[in-house]
Design a protein around this nucleic acid. Structure first.
Lengths: 230, 230
DNA sequence: GTGTCTTACGCCACGCGTAACAATG
DNA sequence: CATTGTTACGCGTGGCGTAAGACAC
């Protein structure tokens, strides 16, 4: 599998469309850069550039991979930062997942609510899809999650799930409610109550409760999702 | 900066919470694995594990980084796959961005619409946030994007943007409408018309049009977003 | 002693740079 | 012939495995 260093090489070339300048920008010489691109192409088993002996162009595959590569590098940076932030707030921190769309809407109020209810507690935010959050919750990698389930009994893959109306309300999913937030005297349960209260007024339509009891490694745990009241 | 191989090491250890078994699973011996974890910790400048001479536990930072690391590895896999898919469909392919929430809802119909209107054209799907899509469109890395803008004149950061009602309708953002889809006789313009038509009926409230003319490298281009009709 | 992780050390491979090569305008 | 990207080759760093150490139960 390719490495991040190779992605950096690729992105540099894709940006410049010129090996010499890209190499310069990467503080290296062209030949090793060419080689890295070749290795990456080998690894992916796809030609990323069209080299027409006087110009370099991205192939369709290259164009597509360019989007993903930049995204990966950006996320790698962010991950590094996240870890340091978590360290800083070791005295009371809580891992919180949220769906992307919530960032524009409800998350600012969630952040404020946590800041008021549990001052000093560091909120570790992870942008994740709903399905990823359920995995993370059951595995104990996050304590809380803001998700939104498809409407009335429809399954995930049905495109009728939310086609003719809005989504179900935002749901606050909780793992092991009795547990205290590390370094604090507040339980995730009471914090979640506070958040639901403080973020009330978001578009909601129906009440819905979901709970599962999956096994995760040695100990089992339960997650439950409660709607944000309207 | 760390490498993906180090992330694989970290994830293996974080999963097993045991260096020996993790090493085994990675087809290597423990000592180099220990070293890689140390190097990763050095790089991040954060302790990821609490080693108490008979057990290994994740620190708060480690827990947080675990979430991100898994995500990165998954996305790396996906990126590799995307590139190969793009290669396969070189005869007519179109890069299409979409916001995560659309996957459950409108994307299946978009895919069907493209399949009918432009059979044989490969649809390269990229899950991206709205802001990322605008960047990708202006940079020419995607041709079309399905986004959703916050409601009536509110700015991105305002938490009132969509607090008390649903979002604005889905918008189909287009780059350089005159351009033809590579390897096909269909223009992105006509394809987008078809998609808007075929996906009509999604929750929409207000009409809205946004267009910008940013410079992207040498040539400038314009992107415009048109609402999906209700 | 049996299990754990870490430190020490030698070897090989991989990635770099320099130099020579090929190709195009 | 200037400028591009590729091939060839030698060197040094870095990551591996083996072996030995430290520590706990």
């Amino acid at each position: 599998m390719f490495e991040l260093s190779q992605l950096r090489c690729f992105v540099a070339v894709a940006r410049e469309l010129n090996f010499r300048r890209a190499a310069e920008h990467l503080h290296m010489t062209q030949p090793p850069l060419s080689r890295q691109i070749q290795l990456l192409e080998d690894d992916l088993n796809v030609k990323l550039f069209e080299r027409t002996s006087r110009s370099v162009r991205l192939t369709a595959a290259g164009k597509s991979f360019f989007v993903e590569a930049q995204d990966l590098l950006k996320r790698a940076e962010a991950a590094s930062l996240t870890a340091r932030q978590a360290e800083a707030g070791q005295h009371g921190s809580i891992s919180f997942g949220f769906i992307p769309v919530a960032a524009f809407d409800i998350m600012p109020r969630v952040i404020k609510a946590v800041g008021d209810k549990a001052p000093g507690v560091n909120l570790l935010l992870h942008e994740m899809l709903t399905i990823e959050q359920i995995e993370a919750l059951t595995a104990g990698r996050t304590e809380l999650g803001l998700i939104r389930l498809p409407g009335k009994g429809s399954d995930w893959n049905s495109d009728a799930s939310s086609a003719n109306g809005s989504f179900s309300p935002f749901m606050l999913a909780i793992r092991s409610s009795r547990r205290r937030i590390s370094g604090s005297r507040i339980s995730t349960d009471s914090l979640s109550s506070c958040i639901r209260q403080r973020t009330a007024g978001t578009p909601t339509k129906s009440l819905r409760r979901s709970s599962t009891t999956p096994r995760c490694g040695r100990n089992s745990c339960s997650i439950s999702a409660k709607p944000i009241p309207s």
